[in-house]
Design a protein around this nucleic acid. Structure first.
Lengths: 222, 222
DNA sequence: CGGCATCCATTTTGATACTG
DNA sequence: CAGTATCAAAATGGATGCCG
């Protein structure tokens, strides 16, 4: 039940552990914060409860994720990455970066979308160079979901949940947000079309386009 | 036969294409240069001819690899990465970096090892900072295999084949090379034990330890 | 050598029903 | 809600035979 590539190679050994189907997407989910069993299921359509259990067990066994309790008043079980698990972020961001450059044509009719995925997208698109000396806190409200990006002199922290002291707040719906995140429209265009609204520091809002750069699209193979 | 995650997400789309078993290891092989069908088979024990054919077809379909002819006098068919395929190097290096830090205990009795894998390891361990202003060409001879690393002011190019004008040449056997690459011994120790020999620029040989740094081992979970 | 095709045993998966 | 248990469908692997 434990199929290994049988190679003394760092890449192969990593893939022995996290190379199975669903595992890297599961890690993607956990990279934006602790998640409950049912939320993992609903964000990974097609994954069955049994397989999710097996994957989580495996991640626990290798000290990549851990079962925890959400802080009160929730006090409900959830899964969170360990430090070793968080160190897999470069792997997921590298996959995302390549995908953004080569694969992000229009969404398929049957493709689902979760705003939290764009949280990782922002980490991948963040331009640390452009952010030197910049200090800003943005809050994003997408329907009922909200998350925030805190930027401080070349570093960024994007996570789920509201910002503590946002300098600017952007509100929009899921479809518009998806189109902005994928480069099919821009925030200024959405503001003009009234599908998005923004409040707060005007100058910092204009900075957004400079801080997050989508890669030039290279091709659109199917 | 084409199972997709069905998510509008760059990570998921990338995994739709290269997430199947064997695919990333196949890309690892091609990242060190064009390879013939039989060499791919022999470096990926357990992969069958039919599955290798299927994987190569898929990579060709997505313009990640291409079937080419090796230059004369060989003139034999081989597979090489396209530019888009080479851009997957950060993915493989990220996997390797994590694996080196967390998983590289002693080799299992049944684990195979190919020196070419260490070529990628060198790219992953290369410290661009430490190499500013350094210009050097190293050749490595591992039994009959040879490859080279050319360093020029913070950039590195590691590939199979001999160096054009090596400043230093290191010769050793596969086992010793494996132990050096995995941090279980060091080049100076191997030289003292006469399991490795080195000729050429002494100063540049000493530089090696500074240019390539293995990560601190974090744990050794099985 | 460089593949493609076929057959078959074994694993992995996906869907669904079920329990504390 | 958080999982277990079950079963059918699909993917994989290994061997082998064939052909240019």
């Amino acid at each position: 039940v434990d199929r290994s590539y049988g190679q003394y190679c760092a890449t192969a050994r990593t893939l022995d552990i996290i190379g199975e189907r669903w595992t890297l997407l599961l890690i993607r989910e956990l990279l934006t914060g602790p998640r409950r069993f049912k939320d993992l299921l609903s964000n990974l359509p097609g994954l069955s409860t049994g397989l999710l259990t097996a994957r989580l067990k495996r991640l626990e066994h290798y000290d990549i994720a851990r079962k925890t309790l959400l802080p009160p008043p929730a006090s409900t079980p959830a899964y969170a990455l360990t430090p070793a698990g968080k160190e897999l972020e470069p792997v997921v961001l590298a996959l995302a970066t390549w995908g953004m450059k080569h694969l992000m044509d229009a969404p398929g009719d049957d493709e689902v979308f979760e705003p939290s995925w764009a949280v990782l997208g922002m980490r991948a698109c963040f331009d640390a160079q452009a952010a030197t000396g910049v200090r800003a806190s943005y809050e994003f409200r997408v329907d009922d979901d909200r998350f925030h990006a805190d930027i401080d002199d070349g570093t960024i922290n994007v996570a789920a949940g509201p910002a503590h002291q946002p300098d600017a707040v952007i509100s929009t719906d899921r479809v518009t947000f998806r189109d902005i995140a994928s480069g099919h429209t821009t925030l200024p265009d959405a503001l003009r079309a009234n599908t998005a609204t923004a409040t707060g520091d005007r100058a910092l809002l204009r900075e957004l386009a400079r801080l997050f750069r989508l890669p030039d699209r290279a091709r659109a193979s199917s």
